[in-house]
Write a protein that binds this DNA or RNA. Structure first.
Length: 471
DNA sequence: CCTGGAGTTGTCCTA
DNA sequence: TTAGGACAACTCCAG
């Protein structure tokens, strides 16, 4: 048979550079074929709308880079691989590891099954340190970030250095689906507009990184708190899909030690460290998305109010900074980190709604939707996590708006109906005198809502609710 | 087992 | 106007 080749399975490593599995195969075999499988078997959280869209364009890009040689399937990987093995001469199969609980489970079984037929190898292509390697001296997982990162990670061997390679891909004749055949864009609604804010593909990840390292990193530690500044990396969607590796980000940031104050580099690296922490938590606490990590919160009296939830989702709470954040998400499939905290705190501690409502909404809307980071971050905001914001730490949307959007540019960008309101009332439009409102032709309750809840009262209510958890 | 220090990102009140 | 402490204790972690 002339049809002999090795197989790389693309999953959350949609890149050709710094890809350990591809690199391994290329050193061993001349002919490599790449496969992507859209797999929802035993998956307890199917891809959200934004993720499907991102994946669609990512696959188009990748297939193009591979001269249309990407094999695309939908279904159960086990039967797909067994079929491929039966019909071709496959010498070896390899992939980079995933860490979501159902994927760990699936891959373990799959490796066992496939190993009966071909050689199977797996690699670390998406984490700086493996979750089972970062443990306390007593072999139990860390629950607190600082010791996890400082002691657990930084005293270990430094992360793998990025590798670069050029691959030549085997021009096979195997039939498979097209990207469109996966029907990832079936809805043809919201996603198609939102995606215009992004350029999707490996080279754009690199472009985004270079832009950030040049323009954002220099004032990262301070500027990253301001949603209207360009100091955050905005690289999370690429990182989630592996269009860039954390290793590449880590070492490229480190390279700038001569030009950039150490604190900025250290804080950026520690943000990558947070991502490691979240993956570590997910690995050791696989229920992270469905269960409070602090189970005393199981008896917390969450409210249930569809109107509140809808107003939050649509950015119609009457608090300008909250609404700006929620509309940024709706419009661009992304939300600045500061706003994720403010809007998250508001949902959980002012509207008193369960954090899982927020987790689900973000999962559906965010291009960077990531099982580990999303779940762990919501648990952090809600105070239910292992290393969480204390419950009495409740963000005040008025104060936060004034502090982190002092010119109101971010608010006006996403809540344009407030663009003519005097700055004095931008953060509290309900306090604006009626003669000014009619002068600027703004009808509160019609053009822009009154606040859904009172900040002081709802805060007090939350503190009271939390107090029953004591002891 | 004991001990002491520490824990991402805040707010509010008081002096 | 501003700086400092209270908020609430508890668990985690390392020596």
């Amino acid at each position: 048979m002339t049809n002999e080749f090795s197989l790389h399975w693309f999953r959350q490593d949609l890149r050709l550079s710094d890809n350990p599995s591809l690199n391994y195969l290329s050193q061993k075999h001349k002919r490599i074929v790449c496969v992507f499988i859209y797999d929802e078997v035993n998956c307890n959280r199917k891809l959200g709308s934004a993720s499907k869209t991102w994946l669609h364009y990512s696959l188009l890009y990748l297939n193009n880079k591979l001269d249309n040689n990407l094999l695309i399937f939908k279904g159960n990987p086990e039967s797909i691989f067994l079929d491929l093995i039966k019909q071709n001469k496959i010498t070896e199969i390899s992939w980079n590891r995933c860490y979501e609980p159902w994927r760990v489970e699936r891959d373990k079984l799959l490796k066992k099954t496939l190993s009966k037929h071909v050689e199977v190898k797996t690699f670390n292509g998406s984490l700086l340190w493996e979750p089972w390697e970062v443990l306390k001296a007593d072999s139990t997982p860390y629950k607190i970030f600082t010791p996890f990162y400082q002691r657990g990670c930084l005293t270990k061997q430094p992360p793998r250095k990025p590798i670069s390679n050029n691959f030549s891909f085997f021009n096979h004749k195997i039939k498979s689906l097209s990207v469109n055949g996966l029907k990832l864009l079936d809805n043809m609604g919201w996603e198609n507009k939102v995606v215009n804010h992004w350029e999707i593909g490996e080279s754009f990840a690199e472009k985004q990184m270079n832009n950030f390292l040049k323009e954002g990193l220099g004032d990262y530690s301070h500027g990253r708190n301001f949603p209207n500044k360009l100091n955050v990396s905005r690289i999370s969607p690429y990182l989630h899909w592996g269009q860039i590796s954390p290793n590449t980000l880590w070492y490229n940031a480190e390279k700038l030690q001569q030009d950039v104050e150490t604190i900025n580099i250290d804080i950026f690296k520690s943000e990558l460290g947070w991502r490691e922490f979240f993956y570590n938590l997910m690995f050791h606490f696989p229920n992270i998305q469905s269960k409070n990590l602090q189970n005393k919160f199981d008896k917390f009296p969450w409210d249930s109010n569809d109107e509140f939830l809808k107003s939050w989702q649509k950015g119609l709470t009457g608090y300008p900074i909250i609404d700006a954040g929620m509309r940024e998400l709706w419009k661009t499939g992304y939300m600045h980190n500061r706003l994720r905290m403010i809007t998250g705190s508001f949902l959980v501690k002012n509207l008193l709604l369960h954090w899982q409502h927020g987790e689900k909404w973000f999962w559906d809307c965010l291009f960077d939707a990531d099982y580990a980071s999303n779940s762990a971050s919501w648990q952090w905001v809600a105070g239910t996590g292992t290393d969480a914001a204390p419950y009495f730490r409740i963000f005040n949307p008025i104060t936060q708006g004034k502090k982190f959007d002092p010119e109101g540019e971010y608010i006006k960008k996403y809540v344009p109906e407030l663009k003519n309101i005097p700055h004095k009332y931008l953060y509290t439009p309900w306090e604006c005198p009626s003669e000014i409102l009619s002068e600027i032709n703004l009808k509160l309750g019609v053009d822009y809502p009154f606040p859904v809840v009172d900040i002081k009262l709802s805060r007090a209510k939350a503190l009271k609710a939390f107090s029953i958890l004591k002891k």
